[in-house]
Amino acid sequence: MAIARAIRQVGPGLLLAALALVWAFPSLWVLFATFWQAGHFTLVHLSQAWASAPFGGYALNTVEIVGGLFFAQALFGAAVGFVLARYQFPGKGLITALFLLQIVVPLYAVLIQEYRIIQGLHLLNSKLGIMLPYAVSGIGVLTFRQAFRAVPRELEEAARLDGYGTLGVVWHVYLPRAIPAALAFAVVSVTYHWTDFLWPLMVTNTDAARPIAVGLAMLAQASEAGLQWNLLAAATAVVVLPILVLFALYHRRILAAFTASYDW
């Protein structure tokens, strides 16, 4: 009896812990291979990796790209999402489907066309050129639309009775209630663009515009020789540690926002 109860109490926890370990294994391995050699803690690999590519400048570029993109995507996402959530008009279904389509058709399917557009706008070799094709996000629009639809109509009506116009209603009623959705979307957007590689590689030629994933790629090639695992792990650590630390600091809020926002 006692054993059965103990198993029932501890068993699920053990099972989850084992599953978590499987998921966490690659990250743990990266940290291990970076900081551990021949039984000692070492910073040699990390400093070697850091010196092998201009990671400092790349990291700043990445923060600008990722931050600027999230700002643009949230702005357009909230505006379009609000219209789709609260207005009826002809062609609405089609427009919603277009945003869905953007999720289904990746940028890389229309790479050369996108490249030519950026070239025509004289934005090759710039952070703006990296960002522009992603400025309106289908996932962003649908996330805000869903969040706005969950806001009770009564709140909006009460605000209108208080004399607020549409902008006031959006500002005071809708947007504050979309913060969890915005946070959850931020996770999706930031992690995607933090690691995006091929498009930035295609449209940029100078260190001044290139993101951190390009720095990692400088060390990750091994088509003509074996891989230096420690160096690769250290470069990976340089790229993912900022994100991992951010997540570790805010994981409660992020997880809560995520489960609340993406239950469609």
Partner: peptide, 15 residues
């Protein structure tokens, strides 16, 4: 001149 080059082995080849 623009000169595109790959890196085929791991290490600080780009530098």
């Amino acid at each position: 001149l623009t000169y595109d080059y790959p890196v085929g082995v791991s290490g600080p080849l780009a530098q």
